[in-house]
Structures are given as C-alpha cells and as structure tokens.
C-alpha cells in the first residue's frame, strides 16, 4: 500500500522534501518508526501526524487514500 505524506516546516528540511511516498505502512505508529529509521535525525524533533486534517492521538490505521501530514510544533501568531 502506498501512501502520500505531506511534510511541513522544519521536518521538510530534515527529510529534504515536502512530500514522501511510502509503501506497506499499516498505521501511524509504523509510519513513525519507518520515518525515524530512514531519517534518524527526526528522533530529536517533536512532531505529530495528521490524517484527514485531524491530529492522531495514539495509533491509527492508514488507508491508501488517506491524506497524511507530518507537523512540527506550531508557530502561528
């Protein structure tokens, strides 16, 4: 299963792109593990995962058409 991930702010600097496609990711916990294994620097930066524009608390199953985003701490205002 391929999912598309939008990447924002500092996380895009670390990953080197503002978009990423990943295969065989079942849920948001495995997404987090996969990202940290591919980009070890991410372990030092707090971020949340949003699915369908809602922040995920805990773990959530991912489907192929989900809109997934990685969000660093907010800085509005």
């Amino acid at each position: 299963m391929g999912i598309e991930i939008k990447i924002f702010g500092q996380l895009a600097d670390i990953i080197g792109s503002d978009e990423l496609q990943l295969q065989d990711i079942d849920d948001t916990s495995s997404l987090r593990e996969k990202l940290i294994s591919d980009f070890p620097k991410l372990a030092n930066y707090p971020f949340v995962v949003a699915v369908g524009k809602k922040i995920v608390n805990g773990n959530q199953k991912l489907n192929a058409d989900d809109v997934v985003a990685l969000l660093p701490p907010f800085a509005g205002g």
């Binding site: 924002f8 600097d13 985003a69 969000l71 701490p73 907010f74 800085a75 509005g76 205002g77």
Partner: peptide, 24 residues
C-alpha cells in the same frame, strides 16, 4: 487557540539570511 491549534510554521530569518524554526 490559534497559537495552540493551527498548523502554522515560522522560519526566523536572521540578518545574514540564515534561519531557525520558531516554536510558540
């Protein structure tokens, strides 16, 4: 609420054009 809940990100740009990321 805006500061806590809206996904807005800010690059603080210094006079030499280097930057760091702002956190509320």
């Amino acid at each position: 609420e805006i500061k806590a809940k809206v996904p807005i990100f800010g690059k603080e740009i210094f006079e030499d054009e280097t930057y760091s990321w702002k956190i509320n």
